[in-house]
Design a protein around this nucleic acid. Structure first.
Lengths: 150, 150
DNA sequence: ATTGAAATCGCCGTGGC
DNA sequence: GCCACGGCGATTTCAAT
């Protein structure tokens, strides 16, 4: 699907504030409210926009402890099977297959160190896992969404 | 600040769809629209809710290539100084200080391998950086927001 | 509960191919 | 002529007080 500059500006507005009205976005990009809505609908349908979500302070919800885990799996394993094993673990925030020695990098979020330990044990207990190397997050320096424009 | 079950359910609704109306949320959690708004305002003011954003397909915007970079810095460096150096780099999606050998983990997003290489060079060129170890993402297995409830 | 704003829908005009 | 796209106005739903 084709995404032009106008679409990118609309997307930027929505990334900055997903609850802004179509009229407000229209004022910024130079369109009427219905025109903005039609573009947003089209972007949603085509999958360029996946949806709208609230950004929550993890600390406030009792998810203050994070870690990145290098996962080394037994033998040759398809990404889909790794995904299937990780998906049921609620502490898994994100997971990626990667180049290099590890098979995957798993981003974990837990309430505290103890909970993190439990989550790690469960992760290491998966039968596909040979070993793991975990790195505990001490502080979040930066977290942002990538801009449509460079 | 105190966040109860009702607040958590409201947050869940907003995480699922940040553009849903107060009335719709109210139907799901058993409150009137104004009551929901008051709670949302309070959650925003207290910082539990940081805001609302659009979830974008990075591929569609031409940000198809990701990497995680272990950053090893020269000497003892304060997190704030690392942050200050990383903040101007648009390819830096997230960055964390971590336990272990590395000083920080940097999450990069670029248009393609070539752009990633450029971004990496710029990162390695920072005077605080001693060396880096980068891991290129091959595929995203999973990406989700942590639920308020376990 | 009332008043104003926003979302939504149908209809029409314009311009490119 | 057809299609893509935007504006306008009416109606319904929502937000704010």
């Amino acid at each position: 699907m084709h995404v032009n500059t106008l679409d990118q500006r609309i997307i930027s507005c929505l990334v900055a504030n997903a609850r802004s009205s179509y009229a407000d976005i229209g004022k910024l990009v130079g369109l009427s409210a219905p025109a903005v809505k039609r573009r947003v609908d089209r972007l949603l349908e085509s999958g360029v926009l996946r949806g709208f979500t609230a950004v929550v302070d993890p600390e406030a919800l009792g998810w203050g402890t994070e870690a990145f885990v290098e996962m080394h799996c037994k033998g040759n394993i398809q990404p889909a099977r790794i995904r299937a094993r990780l998906e049921p673990l609620p502490e898994v925030v994100a997971a990626y297959t990667v180049s290099g020695a590890a098979d995957a990098i798993v981003h974990l979020r837990a309430a505290d160190i103890h909970h993190l330990e439990t989550a790690l044990e469960r992760l290491r207990g998966l039968e596909i896992v040979e070993r793991t190397v975990s790195t505990v997050v001490l502080s979040t320096l930066l977290e942002r969404s990538p801009n449509p424009e460079h």
